[in-house]
């Protein structure tokens, strides 16, 4: 919290992004019922957006008071962001996750989940590929089978 702490990469960007989104939400909140009485449906959203914006404004000031990041070569900077904010495993996991959720509907739950689990485990596990495969495929299949049995058969959740 000390002002002397240098800015973290992306800190300013995130705050500005949040402020931008809050303004969008504010406009949407205003559209509900304008500035009407306290029991109108738009009052709450507008009030809360005001709190968010106020908070973010203070946060913005705090960030601006901090030392801006030193100039450094792009490669160093990218590596630093990678280390602090988005390490490679996280980035890959996010990509896998998004791919998994998009595949849920066309492929169905069982195949997409087995694929996701296998891919994620192959990527995260260490060791020779054959050993990883030997571990990942049975674990993935077993997990999905157990989940399907539990949810679909017992709890009548019709999985996609």
């Amino acid at each position: 919290m000390t002002p002397s702490r240098p800015r973290r990469p992306g800190e300013l960007g995130l705050t500005l992004l949040l402020i931008g989104s809050a303004f969008l939400l504010g406009r949407e909140a205003y559209r509900i019922s304008g500035f009407a009485g306290p029991s109108s449906p738009g009052f709450g959203p507008l009030a809360v957006v005001a709190v968010v914006l106020g908070g973010l404004a203070i946060e913005l000031l705090r960030i601006l008071r901090r030392r801006p990041p030193e100039r450094e070569p792009l490669a160093v900077r990218v590596r630093r962001i990678g280390h602090e904010i988005l390490p490679l495993p996280v980035l890959v996991a996010m990509a896998l996750l998004v791919a998994y959720v998009t595949a849920l509907e066309p492929l169905g739950f069982v195949s997409s989940s087995i694929l996701f689990l296998t891919a994620a485990m192959l990527f995260l596990l260490r060791g020779p590929l054959s050993r990883r495969l030997l571990l990942a495929v049975p674990v993935a299949t077993g997990t999905v089978a157990a989940i399907r049995l539990l949810f679909q058969e017992l709890f009548q959740v019709l999985l996609p």
């Binding site: 509907e105 066309p106 169905g108 739950f109 069982v110 019709l158 999985l159 996609p160």
Partner: peptide
């Protein structure tokens, strides 16, 4: 369920 979703798409 799964089969007919695929058809729909």
């Amino acid at each position: 369920m799964m089969v007919h979703r695929r058809h729909l798409l």
